[in-house]
Simulated scan of single mutants.
Amino acid sequence: MSNYYRKFVSSILQSLESAIIVCSVEGEITELNRTAEFLLDLSREELIGKSIESIRTKLGSIIDLLSDAIRIGETITLTDQHFDAFGEKHFDVRITPLREEKRKRLSGVILSLDDITRRKKLEQELKSREQLAALGEMSAKVAHEIRNPITIIGGFVKRILASSDREKTEEYARILMDELQRLDGIVGEVLEISRRKSRPSEEEFDLVSVTREILAGFEEKATTENVKLVLYAKEDRIEYYGNKDRIKQVIINLVQNAIEASDKAGQVLITLERRIDCVSFSAKNGGKTIPEETLKRIFEPFFTTKTLGTGLGLSICKKIVEEHGGEIHASSGMEGTVFTFTLPTKKFGRFELEKDTDS
């Protein structure tokens, strides 16, 4: 019966697709399967009884982890490992201490190498297809956004060519300039959203005064829309260390959206707050409630519920905030819609930077 079970276990070991190498606590190879022989290009006779160090040239630093697994008595798992000796192949590696049931002590260690090369190639191919699909979708949306102003420009160029009226020609020229600026804005937004994330340049500035300047700039628009702008800040100054122009871009976008989304005779409440480890900015309006499904997608590139617009404004805001190590989110209910972003002072705050030059 003992021989039967020994042969049965050996049969299972030899049929495994993973390469299995068993070592004693002294580092002597005591067992391996056919997959391991094929992988190492060495026969069983050449390896049994030899030191595991004899195949260091093939397994590299993995050999050192065998003694670590025995020392701590725990399984060590490594994913997506590459060995120069095996060419382009990639492996998941598992090093498991081998225990004796009766004595409950470690008698060795099992090294398992699972070839994941095919799976990795499939994952890379799938990722490549997803990127191509995303690129195709983005290209289609950009083409759609650009086509409208191009059509308008083409129409007014024909009118200019057919008109001898100077006043009409000047009017058409102004419309052409507006559409060209619109085209330039679309291209700028697309370039911004496709730009690689990077650590922004930093300078010290006061968020409260920056916000006041922006609100003053929107005063005329708010009056036209019959919307009241209200700023609430407990402190007169809230110092921050980051990219002033890019943070202004976020605030401008959120304030503008809040004004446009407000009910007539409504109010936009801007709140600035210094917390323990961050600064917080929120823009609240009393417009229509945004459905949950829309909120989930509202920061996606090209997603918009407006008739005009690229749908890139909020995704650019998200990108800028995340570049500063912050977070942005939106919520909507019966009391209104609130867009909030927080910027960590621990990472970018001036006082923290003075304490830790590595931040």
Rank of each mutant, 00 (worst) to 15 (best):
G154M: 13
L40M: 15
I72N: 15
R182G: 12
L65T: 01
S164I: 07
T96V: 14
L312G: 04
L176C: 01
K288M: 10
E273I: 00
L32P: 03
C23D: 02
T224E: 15
L295G: 00
K347M: 11
G87H: 13
V227W: 02
T337P: 04
T169F: 04
K244N: 08
Q131V: 12
K102Y: 10
Y240H: 09
T151S: 14
T77N: 14
A233V: 03
S163I: 02
L314V: 04
R246I: 03
A258I: 02
I72G: 07
V9I: 08
R182W: 09
K318E: 15
R350C: 07
I259S: 06
L269A: 04
I259K: 04
L215N: 02
K288G: 07
E293K: 09
E300C: 05
I316S: 12
L229Y: 10
D245F: 06
K58M: 09
R174Y: 08
E220M: 09
G73K: 08
K141M: 12
V338T: 15
L42M: 13
K120N: 07
C317G: 04
K306G: 09
T345W: 07
V338C: 13
L42R: 14
I252G: 03
A143Q: 13
F205H: 01
E45R: 10
K228R: 11
T337I: 06
T169H: 04
F341M: 00
I63Y: 03
F281D: 00
T75Q: 13
I55N: 08
S139I: 01
G266E: 13
I276E: 15
G27Q: 14
I328D: 00
H90E: 13
I251N: 00
L183R: 03
P149K: 11
V230M: 06
I298C: 01
E292F: 04
E137P: 03
S67V: 08
V22N: 07
Q256A: 06
G185I: 03
V142Y: 13
D115N: 14
D358A: 10
G188T: 07
L65C: 01
G286N: 15
R237L: 06
K284F: 00
L176H: 00
Q14H: 12
H90R: 12
E130D: 11
F351P: 02
R237P: 01
L122D: 14
K306P: 03
K355Y: 07
S51I: 05
S54R: 11
I247D: 05
K104Q: 15
Q14L: 07
R350D: 09
G349E: 12
I116W: 01
I276C: 08
L42Q: 13
G155C: 05
L122R: 06
G108L: 06
G336Y: 00
I214V: 10
K7P: 00
L229W: 08
S107F: 09
I48D: 13
F86T: 04
R6P: 00
A233I: 00
E125D: 13
F299M: 05
K104E: 15
D206E: 11
V208D: 07
E189T: 02
A69C: 12
V93D: 01
I62F: 02
S164M: 09
F38K: 12
I70Q: 14
